[in-house]
Design a protein around this nucleic acid. Structure first.
Lengths: 204, 204
DNA sequence: CGCTCGGCATGACAAATGTCAGAGCCGGTC
DNA sequence: GACCGGCTCTGACATTTGTCATGCCGAGCG
């Protein structure tokens, strides 16, 4: 291990990021070369420092971890991405994997464990937290079509049908049909419960 | 500073808790004597170790930081409580202060800053993050009556009126009246938007 | 004591929503 | 070419909501 693994850390919580940087620096084969507090900043830092592994929080202002990962995939193909998250929803894991992310772990792991996982990812292997993987498998795929998901998302903040229709450039009747079918597919009581369910499963 | 400040750290995210413990231990006047990953565990640890300052995450399984603080207030009056939170809602701050919490800070502060704040709190002073305080003041008090808030809370998961009525032991008509008045008071489009608003302001 | 306010309820009406049947268009697949 | 599934729309209907007027009761207050 003569050449250390160069890391980018991105998390909007300064406390966590700083603490993490300090802990990971204790490992002598790991080197934190850049830190960022938002999605765009993470991208800029990655371009500037070209790290070996990017450790990204899933929830960040600007652009979430998965979006950053997508951009990195094309801009810096050599940079492996590891996503760290507080509350992992099954759908997020799926989206992350589709975006070429190499690792996905909850924040409940210890720093020691995280260091090992970073090495695993750097070596070209993948690592997914077993519990999250189990959740993702049991939750299965989203039964929603693209439009249904889109409309459901627009319905998320409690907007009336008319507003959703306008924002989606659809007729109100169509919106109601999509919502109805989404609600049926999810087995929910009404659209709002459906939104909640889809959220929980990471389908929106 | 011959006698160090004895700390209890409680956060369900092992990564953060461990990292924090490591960083705070670097300060030679601070000593982490206990750690916990949940509300009940935090209480048990506090009883066992009687720390000078308890640093609690707001969101924890079992019982949130404010509830733990309430219990500590009576059981260990000498133990100061400092709440740390990811996304601080105005209402939470108010509830926390009412529970006798001495400090309230977002996770965006640096560890250095946190250490200073721990000393401030230990010295018997209070510390509230200026930005959160400003939010709380501008958000003001909840205009909702106890019943309105209760009904709104039951409406949170998208349940129909009939179910809310049953769970609150009220007539459906009354429930609709309360919801209606809550929606009006909050200036929302409908009950679901009202729930969202009330959530954002920490009024539920 | 009378007033006001909050809690609780009913009934009635208008508006929004959920549900269903049908129908045309497109891009795949067998 | 026939068939299927997803996307889009319309129209009609039942149900659920939001809103309002109105009433009763009890607690607190001037």
């Amino acid at each position: 291990m003569s050449v250390p693994v160069r890391l980018l850390l991105a998390d909007d919580e300064h406390l966590i990021r700083g603490a993490l940087a300090a802990l990971l620096s204790l490992e002598d084969d790991l080197l934190v070369v850049a830190e960022a507090a938002s999605g765009p900043e993470a991208l800029a830092m990655a371009r500037a420092h070209e790290p070996d592994v990017a450790v990204l929080d899933l929830q960040m202002p600007g652009a979430d971890g998965v979006r950053v990962a997508t951009s990195l995939r094309t801009e810096l193909p050599g940079c492996r991405v590891l996503i760290v998250t507080g509350h992992g929803r099954p759908g997020h894991l799926k989206r992350a994997l589709a975006a070429g992310v190499r690792g996905f772990v909850p924040k409940t792991v210890s720093a020691q464990r995280l260091a090992e996982i970073i090495r695993t990812v750097h070596a070209g292997n993948r690592y997914v937290d077993p519990e999250l993987a189990a959740d993702a498998i049991s939750a299965g795929d989203s039964p929603l079509t693209a439009r249904e998901a889109e409309v459901l998302e627009l319905a998320a903040d409690g907007a009336p049908v008319a507003e959703i229709a306008e924002r989606a450039a659809l007729s109100p009747g169509t919106v109601r049909n999509y919502l109805s079918s989404a609600v049926t597919k999810l087995g929910a009581e009404n659209r709002h419960a459906a939104v909640r369910l889809a959220r929980e499963r990471g389908w929106v």
